[in-house]
């Protein structure tokens, strides 16, 4: 097992090295790196990776329509961008949302996010509704593919706009400066997405707010915004941004699914997250890693490195029933 992981690392390093050399050759052309990233991105197939709940809300959307005498109206997106949402709500006593309806042009996750949003805000007060984040919408649906997170952001934006409309306040977006011309995304929107969702790369930003997904001319500006947002955080908090346990678990799961599982699966192994106990990440290894004496090494060197790097440097990894080791 260790050999496999090691091989995986070496291979990864070799690939990185090759790419670096490639970049060096073209150091005059900063574009090279991006186009490589874009090419890889284009290969990803994301279509059917929806949760049952997304599919269910898409096939049977709730609250489709427009409330004629609405108190709040929020319209975001456009035909050119590929998705758009019109949200209307009606208030009852004490600013309680008694009805909410939507119209959406867009893909399955855009329709499902809109449907979820109307369900989430019906019956709560405007104040409560104003605290809903894009992540809440995604979680309501059991999660969205990363590339589709912008659908949840669109829902949140429409809600904020509708609330601002009701309160007669100017909508924040207007105050920002357009960074991404292709999708009309402002610096404030990008900043906010980066801060709220701990985004680290241009690709992340594109997934959440679409910025940078078109002509790519704004990539330098997006990089600067990401750098600034990261720097802003550093002085006040040297450690990773404070996360709730739920957020931490979710992030650990993501890292296990996207970074660790594929490596272990190459050798027929598998890993499952059992629990998070303080800073201890309890996992269970399966398949060919499960009975392997060297799995302790694997855990320490590979899984822990990944989890510390991508989640939090304080975490330690432990295997469930770790005293029972057999020899491979």
């Amino acid at each position: 097992m260790w050999q496999v992981v090691n091989r995986y690392f070496l291979l990864g390093q070799a690939v990185l090295k090759a790419l670096n050399i490639f970049y060096c050759f073209d150091s005059d052309h900063a574009v090279v790196k991006r186009s490589v990233v874009k090419t890889i991105r284009g290969e990803r197939k994301i279509m059917w990776e929806y949760t049952g709940k997304v599919k269910e809300h898409f096939m049977n959307p709730r609250n489709v329509g427009v409330i004629e005498d609405a108190d709040g109206i929020g319209e975001v997106g456009s035909l050119a961008c590929g998705d758009a949402l019109k949200l209307t709500f009606k208030l009852g006593e004490e600013e309680k949302i008694i009805d909410a309806q939507f119209q959406t042009f867009g893909c399955a996750s855009a329709i499902a996010s809109s449907s979820a949003l109307t369900e989430m805000i019906k019956g709560i007060t405007l104040d409560e509704a104003s605290k809903i984040t894009n992540d809440d919408i995604a979680q309501y649906l059991g999660g969205l593919p990363k590339e589709k997170m912008h659908c949840s952001v669109m829902g949140r934006d429409a809600l904020e706009k509708a609330i601002a409309f009701y309160r007669g306040e100017p909508y924040e977006k207007a105050e920002g400066e357009i960074v991404c011309e292709c999708f009309g995304v402002t610096d404030l929107e990008i900043q906010r997405a980066v801060q709220e969702n701990q985004l680290l790369s241009i690709e992340d930003v594109t997934d959440y707010v679409k910025a940078g997904g078109g002509c790519e001319n704004c990539h330098d500006k997006i990089s600067t915004i990401i750098d600034q947002a990261t720097e802003d955080k550093r002085p006040e908090n040297k450690k990773a941004p404070a996360m709730t346990n739920i957020q931490k678990i979710r992030l650990i799961e993501d890292v296990i699914d996207s970074e660790i599982k594929p490596a272990l699966k190459k050798d027929g192994g598998d890993i499952e997250l059992i629990d998070l106990d303080g800073d201890a990440v309890i996992v269970k290894l399966r398949g060919s890693c499960a009975n392997c004496k060297t799995s302790q090494v694997t855990l320490k060197n590979f899984i822990e490195t990944k989890i510390r790097e991508l989640v939090s440097p304080d975490l330690i990894v432990k295997e469930e029933n770790s005293d029972e080791f057999n020899i491979c």
Partner: peptide, 11 residues
């Protein structure tokens, strides 16, 4: 040929 199915954000 829509954006969502082309793996990018543009059609």
């Amino acid at each position: 040929g829509s954006a969502c199915t082309s793996g990018s954000l543009e059609p």
